[in-house]
């Protein structure tokens, strides 16, 4: 396939199919994230990259034989390796033996929230999630260092790349408040159902990306100035780390939320909520910053 536009759209469809597969494998939170990130944000980012680098690919000169042999050999070795692996759905597989039973049995009691994924994410494995948040922040800073958020005639308010599309404007005006409301719902309902800071941040960012696409970059930058975004990202990481430091100063281990209130379960609730807010702010601002950086860049010959 020489048309990279088609490649990106096919990848988006593939992502959606993967989300459906995750749903079937009981991973509702993951399906949610994949649908929002893989099918939504990744597609938009790749398309804005294609706008800068050109849509058509040249036919490669190399013969595909050598890569095919390498791939076939590796694949065969991997398939041979799976022959000893536990079967799909086997409840006695090693993956279900170590810490998972404790998370499943004690999670709702110790952390006090029905959604075990959120409990494990923010409380039991809070260190990991803190690390991931910092990685996202670092990636955002790397993109900003590489590209920067450019200003130019195309980012003045009132200018759009697609012209004045009345139908899109009306529908998007109706949809954006709903999207933002839904983002807030996902953010604060993550304790009880599928959702949490990661998904909410992405949904919030897609709301603003939609606004940017339809109303033009200038208008979007009036709503969320680009200068704010790195600071907001840092603020999110700070909230997360601050909760950890608070519990450290209160005489408990880092990120032990039971220090936040007299009742441990109540403290867990508060801690998870604060941490998820921090994650949400970081994810939102970094994804929007990456989008501004890629979409706002002027094309060079």
């Amino acid at each position: 396939m020489r048309d990279l536009f088609g490649v990106v759209i096919l990848f988006s469809i593939y992502s959606f199919m993967t989300a459906a597969l995750f749903m079937d494998l009981d991973a509702v939170d993951v399906a949610f994230t994949e649908a929002a990130v893989g099918a939504g944000v990744t597609t938009v980012l790749m398309l804005s990259c294609l706008r800068l680098t050109g849509r058509w690919e040249r036919r490669p000169k190399h013969s595909p034989l050598l890569p095919l042999i390498v791939v076939a050999t590796t694949g065969t070795a991997l398939v041979y390796g799976t022959l000893d692996a536990p079967l799909l759905g086997d409840p006695n597989a090693p993956a279900h033996q170590h810490v998972a039973p404790r998370y499943i049995e004690q999670g709702p009691i110790e952390v006090g929230m029905p959604n075990m994924v959120t409990a494990v994410l923010a409380s039991y494995r809070g260190y990991d999630t803190f690390g991931e948040t910092v990685v996202i922040f670092t990636a955002g800073i790397a993109v900003l260092l590489l590209l920067g958020i450019q200003e130019g005639p195309h980012t003045r308010p009132g200018r759009t790349a697609i012209g004045d599309q009345i139908v899109l404007r009306v529908v998007v005006k109706l949809l954006i408040p709903l999207i933002l409301l839904y983002g807030l719902y996902v953010q604060f309902h993550g304790d009880f159902g599928a959702g949490g800071g990661f998904q909410a941040g992405v949904i919030f960012a897609t709301g603003f990306i939609l606004y940017d696409l339809v109303f033009g970059e200038g208008d979007a930058r009036l709503v969320v100035p680009p200068d704010w975004l790195p600071r907001l990202g840092a603020l999110g990481v700070l909230i997360y780390g601050g909760v950890g430091l608070y519990s450290l100063f209160a005489g408990k281990p880092f990120l032990d939320y039971s220090a936040l209130a007299h009742d441990p379960v109540h403290g867990q609730h508060l801690g998870v909520m604060l941490v998820e807010i921090g994650v949400g702010i970081t994810v939102f601002s970094i994804i929007l910053a990456i989008f501004y950086a890629l979409a706002g860049r002027a094309r060079r010959a």
Binding site: I162, Q165, V167, L168, V171, L175
Partner: peptide
């Protein structure tokens, strides 16, 4: 409601983009 709002809009936008 969401599908009824977005689906025709998406179709409209695609067709208009092709015409453009």
């Amino acid at each position: 409601i969401f599908v009824l709002a977005t689906n025709p809009t998406a179709t409209h936008a695609t067709a208009k983009a092709a015409l453009h």
